[in-house]
């Protein structure tokens, strides 16, 4: 569906100005174009799986993110149940996905699961949010979460965000991580918990997003 939002004038005026400016070619005269291969300058990517996992674990520590390595999905589910009990969570915002359903299978009784379709206020009252991640980057420590099935709202609201990912989705560079994540409706890259630089420009690990981040990385492929 293509829809014109405005009378065309604004667009035509701007495009005509740009064409005019291109004739003056200020930019062309000003800047020689260097050969582009950005990857040459970026930090070294990690090629092998072991190297990626240990680099990712190191980055998680630097980013003050809790990192849990699990052999199987079953281990992750048990870890999640224990975390929920320890933190005394009663209300969790959850992404509606089979994978998230599996890792929450062992939750203690009485813990409410709130999906995005329950509305903003219900999500806003949750103590933690549970989502799956589409990809991770060992180099920067970025965790890529999609926007599908309520993941955007759950991850935006949660004071603590718990993310589950599989090791085969751990990439060696950000470039690769974005490719692995694919193109769902939207993506969010989390690199550590939210930060605020307020008074005196000192970073405070808190803000409107998750103030703590927990990552479960599952080694088994299935």
């Amino acid at each position: 569906m293509s829809r014109k939002s405005e009378p065309a004038d604004g667009r035509e005026i701007i495009m005509a100005r740009i064409r005019e400016a291109s004739k003056a070619a200020g930019l062309r005269a000003a800047t020689p174009m260097p050969a582009y291969d950005g990857r040459n300058g970026l930090p070294e990517p990690h090629a092998d799986r072991g190297g990626r996992i240990s680099a990712f674990a190191r980055r998680m520590e630097e980013l003050r993110t809790s990192f849990v390595l699990c052999d199987t999905l079953q281990d992750a589910a048990e870890g999640m149940a224990a975390l929920c009990e320890r933190a005394k969570w009663r209300r969790l915002g959850v992404q509606s996905s089979p994978f998230v359903g599996d890792v929450l299978a062992g939750l203690p009784g009485g813990v409410e699961r709130v999906t995005a379709d329950k509305g903003k206020s219900a999500l806003g009252a949750c103590e933690a949010g549970i989502v799956e991640c589409r990809a991770m980057d060992a180099q920067t420590g970025a965790v890529v979460v999609g926007a599908e099935n309520g993941a955007l709202e759950v991850s935006a609201c949660a004071p603590t965000l718990v993310v589950f990912g599989r090791a085969h989705r751990l990439a060696g560079s950000l470039d690769e991580a974005i490719r692995v994540a694919g193109s769902p409706g939207g993506l969010t890259l989390f690199t550590g918990p939210s930060m605020t630089y307020g008074a005196e420009r000192r970073p405070v690990a808190s803000g409107h997003g998750p103030t703590s981040l927990v990552i479960y990385l599952i080694l088994a492929e299935k």
Partner: peptide, 22 residues
């Protein structure tokens, strides 16, 4: 901007991104 590997949050959002809790 912050002496970090990446800014702590980057979101790619479009008109077709599911939002506003349905």
């Amino acid at each position: 901007a912050g002496g970090t590997a990446l800014p702590s949050g980057v979101s790619l959002i479009g008109p077709d991104t599911p939002r506003a809790c349905g």
